[in-house]
Structures are given as C-alpha cells and as structure tokens.
C-alpha cells in the first residue's frame, strides 16, 4: 500500500517540478530544460537529482532554491537535492516542443547534432540558424558568448534584429 502511494507521488513530483520555470527563460520548465535527472524516494526521504547546464551558471543556485521552495509548499520537508555531473548536460535533451517554446519566446533554439558542432577548434559559426522573429536563415553570429552562459548573440541580416541563440553543448 505504501509503495503504491509513493509511486503516485513520484509522478506527482515530476509534475510539480515541471511547473517550475527556468529563472532566466521562464517559458520553459526545469524539467524541459533537462536539469532534473531523477526523482526517487529513499525510505521517507525524497531525493532529487539535478545536473548543471553550465558549471558556472549562476542560475543553478536559484533553481535549487526554487525546487526547495516548491517542495515545501507541497508539505514535503524531508528531501535532498543531489548534483550529478555524469552524463553531462546537453542541449540534445530538449524536445521539439521545448525548442518551439524557445523560438516563440524569441530565442533561436539549439541545432541538433551537438557533437559535430562543438568539436571544431577554429572558427565555426553556426549555419542556418533561423531568426526567431522573421524566420530568415540569412543570419550572422555576433558573439558566441551572449547574455547568459547558454546563449550566443546573433543578428538577422534581413529584419536586422539582434537575437539570442541557445548554443549547442
């Protein structure tokens, strides 16, 4: 009986975690971002495993606090948040739905095939990144380092808008 109750709760926990917005990009949740890796009950303690997007991302601390706050709101007080490095976070974990949410929000989503993209050591501007405003692929990389660790700054040569591109890692 207890086990059945706990099994329900794990999916419930995933649901509530899926309601916590990313602190920087509020249109997607921590689950959609791929930061939450596992949810488990260990006896009476809830263990949540998360992985950092970028090792120095200042939002990680914020995400942990948001998770803590949300769990307490549900009356869950006995929990532990573990930080896991392996496997390393990758933008490949984002679903197409998540990517389309990013685009609607004005951020060009990461392109697929991360491994090929990040491997080049000499100038390798992302190609055919569509402008989230006008969909033109006539775009130009301004800087691989943008407003947050996870974004590059690009510019559309057609509508002339500068935009963020969620870079592949």
């Amino acid at each position: 009986m207890v086990k059945i109750l706990q099994a329900k709760e794990v999916s419930f926990i995933w649901d509530i975690l899926n309601e916590i917005p990313d602190p920087e990009i509020p249109v997607i949740s921590l689950v959609e971002l791929g930061v939450v890796r596992a949810v488990n009950w260990v006896d009476t303690q809830l263990e949540i495993t998360i992985t950092p997007t970028y090792s120095g991302c200042p939002a990680m601390r914020m995400m942990e606090m948001d998770i803590e706050q949300r769990l307490r709101k549900e009356g869950i007080t006995d929990f532990k948040i573990n930080m896991q490095y392996h496997p390393a976070w990758t933008t490949d974990w984002m679903s197409d739905l998540t990517k389309s949410k990013l685009k609607t929000y004005g951020i060009a989503p990461p392109q697929a095939h991360t491994k090929q993209r990040i491997g080049a050591l000499i100038s390798d501007a992302p190609t055919e990144v569509a402008c989230p405003q006008c969909n033109s692929v006539n775009t130009k990389l301004i800087s691989e380092f943008g407003s947050t660790a996870c974004k590059s700054l690009m510019k559309c040569n057609d509508c002339l808008e500068a935009f963020d591109y969620f870079k592949c890692i």
């Binding site: 490095y85 390393a88 976070w89 050591l121 000499i122 100038s123 691989e144 890692i169």
Partner: peptide, 15 residues
C-alpha cells in the same frame, strides 16, 4: 565526469 562537463565549455573558450 567533471572533465566531460568542462570540455564542452573549453571548446568554446579555445575557439
């Protein structure tokens, strides 16, 4: 594991 994480960022730095 930390190296596997770091290398992704190091690639951007080196470029």
């Amino acid at each position: 594991a930390i190296a596997a994480k770091t290398i992704k960022e190091s690639t951007y730095h080196l470029r």
